[in-house]
Write a protein that binds this DNA or RNA. Sequence first.
DNA 1: TACGTTTTGTTTAGTCCTGAACTAAGGGGA
DNA 2: TCCCCTTAGTTCAGGACTAAACAAAACGTA
Lengths: 404, 404
Amino acid sequence: MAIRPTARTDVTRSAVLAHLGAHGPASRADLARNLSVSPALMTQLTKDLLGDGLIRELAETRSQGGRPARMLGLVQSAGRAVGVKVAADHLALVEVGIDGAVSRAESVAFDASSATMLSDLAASIRAFIGSRSATPLLGIGVGVPGDVDRQGTGVVHSAQLGWQNTPLGDVLRRELGLPVLVENNVTALAIAERLHGVGRQHENFLVVTIGTGVGAAIVVDGSVVRGARGGAGEIGHLPVVDGGPRCRCGNAGCLEAMVGEDALVARGRERGVIGGADGIEQLRDAADRGDSAATAIFGEAGHTLGRALAGLVHTLDPEIVIVLGEGTAAWQHWSFGFEPAFRASLMPSRRGVPVAVETWQDESWAQGAAALVISTPFDAEGVAGEQGTEVRRRLVEQAGGSDS
Amino acid sequence: MAIRPTARTDVTRSAVLAHLGAHGPASRADLARNLSVSPALMTQLTKDLLGDGLIRELAETRSQGGRPARMLGLVQSAGRAVGVKVAADHLALVEVGIDGAVSRAESVAFDASSATMLSDLAASIRAFIGSRSATPLLGIGVGVPGDVDRQGTGVVHSAQLGWQNTPLGDVLRRELGLPVLVENNVTALAIAERLHGVGRQHENFLVVTIGTGVGAAIVVDGSVVRGARGGAGEIGHLPVVDGGPRCRCGNAGCLEAMVGEDALVARGRERGVIGGADGIEQLRDAADRGDSAATAIFGEAGHTLGRALAGLVHTLDPEIVIVLGEGTAAWQHWSFGFEPAFRASLMPSRRGVPVAVETWQDESWAQGAAALVISTPFDAEGVAGEQGTEVRRRLVEQAGGSDS
DNA sequence: TACGTTTTGTTTAGTCCTGAACTAAGGGGA
DNA sequence: TCCCCTTAGTTCAGGACTAAACAAAACGTA
């Protein structure tokens, strides 16, 4: 019988799983080095995990001058997670494997302002989960635009959804009977980047999203900054133009009011580039066709964003800035204004900071939310709290059952 | 004989000392709770520390319904530290006790651009240290305006001092034969605030300094954010006015170029408020007398600063903002413009963020630098690295010697 | 083919720390 | 007064983890 895992070992065991999930197969020696643990302990842990059927031995690698390493890999059927992106008018749902790869995706209508929205949401998730599969469902990650007090309890404040003090986490947990982790959507993306993306190679970076709103997540020393009340990264409301246009937050000249999708569309209509019924797609098409008024609108937005991000780079000194979001579809036009403004606004010693713009799919948001679940082992009893422990328990228990 | 401390226990023991130094006397139970350690371990640790003569038992407190607590306090003669503020034209030096209280202070001339500046600096520090006292000197903390790669090695880049890749830490260490911790001056202040000031009650806060330059330090989850290359908090070069006045960093419209001391003085001269030979004191005097042109200059600066800090609050969601620095002498005039701009630029949910403006003395900078030494036990083998271990070793060894 | 080198993985003795049970020392209510 | 309750502090068995020595399995060289 496997050793009864306590809270501490459980975390370390999960770290092994997370590492294998995030970085692919690795040898015991590699794992020990990367997780800053002694080889001796790794022998112990992997013995347990092999016994529990959570990992398996793969082929040996060719020797690099010494004994060849026996690689270890995740047993893919060990677990899966569901990620949900909540928007004002729809939900995006994905199911991911333990390695973060999407196995199923769906988009359904949703009315965030409905009186029954909480039960609607639960029903949509329940429908998506469907019948029990052989692979156990570890939990549900939910990404929302707004502040979340703590991942565990999941109380949400969101101007965009019109939610105040909504106990999203508790309700879903009760309705679904599964661990539920709620987080700000950009923060979730940052966790996903840290786990599966560019962020793997960096301890300090910024994730910036452009689209309807503008958001950021800050990663310092490998973990995401949440702030006092989970509200860090709200760069959409940075004041950038004194006396500028009014923002939906009530203030004037916010970054979002300058470079958000609505602002660009409004400017496009104002200047006659697109018609009154057209949206951001038409504006982008116009720019793609080479319409100079359209490219100017994106260029101006790039300029404003560039100056604002330069400020963030000064404030936080990141290794890299990652730009994501729906707005990146038109990045070629943004960059025209962004690059010169961004570089010129930086102190000479920071001009070299790379900006990575990643391709974007609609389900990326939901994939980020799913990463909340997959990543819980990382934060040792940290933000995810009780729900994180529960996710770990589910992962370990399903295996333990097949073994006793 | 006391148990031979290994690297791990040493850190925990030091954490006890640091807590007692920072928060005053406490019971074993309190210490265990605050340091997230079991009562059992605390019994063990305090036994050692009592044996080493580093702490002592104080009076009992009155019972709060149960057994009364035996309070423990630091033995004040256990150690002292020296803090140095390096400015372009002078040095400020202080000696502090293990509780952070200043016991001696001095200010000496210094030329940061001199060819012999490193040996001058070492000589000034050596003179200040003076003859050996009964209380062992744990180390030297040095605060500089600029980026510091790591506290331990102490390589400095500072535009203000005209230093590039200056190996300050290594040189001083060799010359003085003492542990030397070098850090950005605002970061050092933040550490001091966290240890002795308002920051004791907060895990997430901002420290902002106004004076010749404008700087900030960011505290997240109790520790100071340094960024990828130790350059976090450089808010002096936030771009705030597109196409604004040129800044000494080479860019245009930086915050520092708008609200730094030089900018205010220049504006005062421009508008005829003060004469060509007058400085910031005369401008402040004029404002104190009620000169409306002078108060307007400070008010405008307050307005600009308020908007910029609102942006920081959005980005980082701190519990409180602490304003420090020479510039606070005229805060009553700043606040006139600051308060409305700051509050109005915040999202409604953040309007309540308190701003604490603290009284300022010239030696505060140096006191902050000294806190680097006193605080080393806090960062478990973290930023201070080898030098931190050395400080701990000195603290423990002097006591161990009186015991064997 | 024998032998040192290098890297992987395991075993063993021992340290750090915790949880749980316990003692110590007070307060307050019947 | 006696008994229970609460809080402080200690003791002790046991688990997590490490360092160090060791075994295993390749490669390179003569």
